[in-house]
Structure formats: structure tokens, C-alpha cells
């Protein structure tokens, strides 16, 4: 499922956002495809696409595994001087008690390899994470041309 939001303002450049609900492992594949399509359209290199889509795969899986459901919002910026996009992964799951610990390579609460968060941070040029216990988690990545 998707919802489109077109927020073009007068003359001030434009940004277009798309939100994808992430609630199943199939949605992880859809999230990957959406980001891949956008990056392809914006002419990012194949290596950039692989790098970022791999992180998208890790971050959207995290939503399923830790919160059950959530959403990914892609905001595309296409204006002179600033071309790129942000991906925001948001859930209302249990949140992360200790972000520093959760970001550590090899740390996992689910018997996984513990590379999802640490790996995504390494793969993305811009990565930020906010989490409140009992409220949820918001992770943002951004790539600029």
C-alpha cells in the first residue's frame, strides 16, 4: 500500500514524498524496489544503488522484526543545487533502550548477526537515529548527488 503526497511549492524547488507501509517480508522487497527505482531514475551509480538498497533492506527488516509494522517515507529533492533523497523508517514499536549498544557491530537482541544497524550506518553517507522507549524508533538516511 502506498500513499502519495505531492508538495510542490511555488518556485521554491520541489520535493515529492511517497510512503510505503512495512508490515511483511514482502513489503521489505517493495521498499527495496522503490528506492532502487528512484536511484536509477536519479542516475545514481549501480554501486550507490546496491549500497543504499542493502541498507534499506536492513532497516525495513528491523521494522518487521522489532515493531511488527511501520512505514518508510521517501522524500525526493530535485532542485538546482540540491538533488537527492531522504528515506525515513518509522515505527511505533518498543524503541531502543541503549542506542550506543544497539549500534555496536555484532550486537543483537534476536540472535541475528547484529549487522543491521551498524552495517546500515556504514553503508549510508548520512544516517541518524532517534528512539524513545515505549514510543518507537525513527531512522533517517539521506543521499545527495
Amino acid at each position: 500500500m502506498e500513499k502519495y503526497q505531492d508538495s510542490r511549492d511555488s518556485g521554491q524547488g520541489q520535493s515529492v514524498s511517497t510512503t510505503i507501509f512495512v508490515a511483511s517480508y514482502e513489503d521489505v522487497i517493495v521498499a527495496r524496489q522503490k528506492v532502487r527505482e528512484l536511484m536509477n531514475e536519479m542516475k545514481f551509480s549501480l554501486l550507490d544503488q546496491t549500497r543504499v538498497v542493502t541498507a534499506v533492506s536492513e532497516l525495513s527488516r528491523n521494522i518487521i522484526v522489532h515493531a511488527g509494522k511501520g512505514e518508510m517515507t521517501i522524500i525526493k529533492y530535485d532542485e538546482s543545487g540540491r538533488r537527492g533523497f531522504r528515506c525515513i523508517f518509522e515505527d511505533k514499536g518498543p524503541g531502543i533502550a541503549d542506542i550506543d549498544l544497539a549500534m555496536r557491530e555484532g550486537y543483537s537482541t534476536t540472535n541475528s548477526l547484529g549487522l543491521g544497524l551498524s552495517g546500515s550506518k556504514k553503508l549510508c553517507k548520512n544516517f541518524s537515529i532517534q528512539s524513545t522507549r515505549g514510543k518507537g524508533t525513527r531512522i533517517e538516511i539521506a543521499e545527495w548527488k
Binding site: 554501486l47 546496491t50 549500497r51 542493502t54 557491530e105 552495517g119 556504514k122
Partner: peptide
């Protein structure tokens, strides 16, 4: 591309 990414991922 996959190999480069896997190594970066750790």
C-alpha cells in the same frame, strides 16, 4: 557491487 557492499556491511 554486492561484494563491495557485503564487505562494507561487515
Amino acid at each position: 557491487e554486492v561484494v563491495l557492499t557485503l564487505i562494507q556491511l561487515g
